[in-house]
Amino acid sequence: MPKTTQDNPQRDQLLQRDQLVERIIGHLLRVGVIAAALVALVGGVPYLLAHGGDRVGADYRAFHGEPTDLKYISDIVVAARQLDKPAIIQLGLVILILTPVARVAFTLFAFLLERDWTYVIATLFVLAILVAGLFGFRL
C-alpha cells in the first residue's frame, strides 16, 4: 500500500492551499463563461432580430478573413463601444478566451505567495505564450 499523507504535515498543508486555489479558480472560470455567454447574447440577439431574415451569403463558405475591427482586441473593444453588434459578440468570445488566461495569472499569484520559484517560472512561461498569442500577432 502506498503511504497516506498523515506522515507528512508540510505537504498536507501545501495540498490544502493548492485546493483552496483550485476552488477559487473554479468560480473564476464559471463567472468568466457566464459573462462571455451574456455579452455574446447582448450582441447576438439584436443582430439576429435585425438580420435574421437576411439570406446567407456565400461568405462563410469561402475564407476571406474577418475585418480588422473583429480581429484585434483593442479594435474589437472600440467597435463594441460604438454598439456594433458583431463586435459585441466578438467581445464575448474575447472574454471567453481570456478566462483561461486569468486562470493562469491567478495561479501565478498563488505560486508567488508560496514562494515556489520553480512554478513561478513555469507559470510565467505559459502566461508569456498566451499573451504572445493574443497580442503578438498583429501582422
Binding site: Y60, E66, A87, I89, L93, V94, I97, F137
Partner: peptide, 9 residues
C-alpha cells in the same frame, strides 16, 4: 482571432 479566423456569427 488575430488572423481573422473567428467569425462571431
Amino acid at each position: 482571432l488575430n488572423r481573422g479566423y473567428v467569425d462571431p456569427t
